[in-house]
Amino acid sequence: MRSSLFIALVLLSGAVAGTVHGLVNLVLVEPYLDSAIGIENQQLFDSGKEKDTPEFWANYYSYRAWQKGGEILAGAILGTAIGSLFGIVFGLSKNVLPGSSFVKKALILALIMWATLYVIPFAKYPANPPTVGEPETIILRQTLYLAFIAISGLGALGFYQVYKRINKKALAFAGYAGLMITAFIAMPPNPDPITLSADLLNGFRMVSMVGVSSFWVAVALILGVLWHKIDSDKVTREKYQ
């Protein structure tokens, strides 16, 4: 496949899937974000940093409308970025992935990447709504989160190489599990206190996971279908009865 066509397919699938992610968030996640920001606003009023005036609310709603629009744009950007990684891995691994079609192969790869790059890191460092997170700890939290994702992703890649050499799936899987359990225990927890209600926190985390999962399903379906349709990869089809 030509470079330009490959890049175009990957970017298109990532951008569209990212937009889907943004739209799902607008419907499912925004009510939780608004509730959490409402708590922040109340804290500002109570501390005297802001006054509960019509002017405040006019500015607030205008600002929030801008941020909600930004969510779609950010979804497209993040989708394009993560979709690029997905496209690279899919392009390199499509011949060894299980599945009888490109769509099935893409869905299986998306399931693996969703688990290693999102679900497992989420178990250690779950998503938090506004009001959770001190500005002073942002660099530490970003470093920890990125490091855990890198350990999980590179660990999966490393143990896949081990599997290819020793051809023992259970042993390679156990090695990856051991690595992640060690990282889970060794790495420090999120240092910031959580003062939100459990209902708001858990509800936010649940819909957050639905949103991210919608991206992985969408990017796999779109890239798999596009790859199948275009398929200018000089595919040799052997038919036999």
Binding site: H21, G22, N25, V29, E30, L33, W66, Q67, K68, G70, E71, L73, A74, G75, I77, L78, Y118, P121, F122, Y125, P126, A127, N128, P129, P130, Y145, V207, S208, G211, V212
Partner: peptide
């Protein structure tokens, strides 16, 4: 600008 998605994406 990316605030809401940043929270939602974890």
């Amino acid at each position: 600008l990316t605030h809401d998605l940043r929270h939602a994406a974890g």
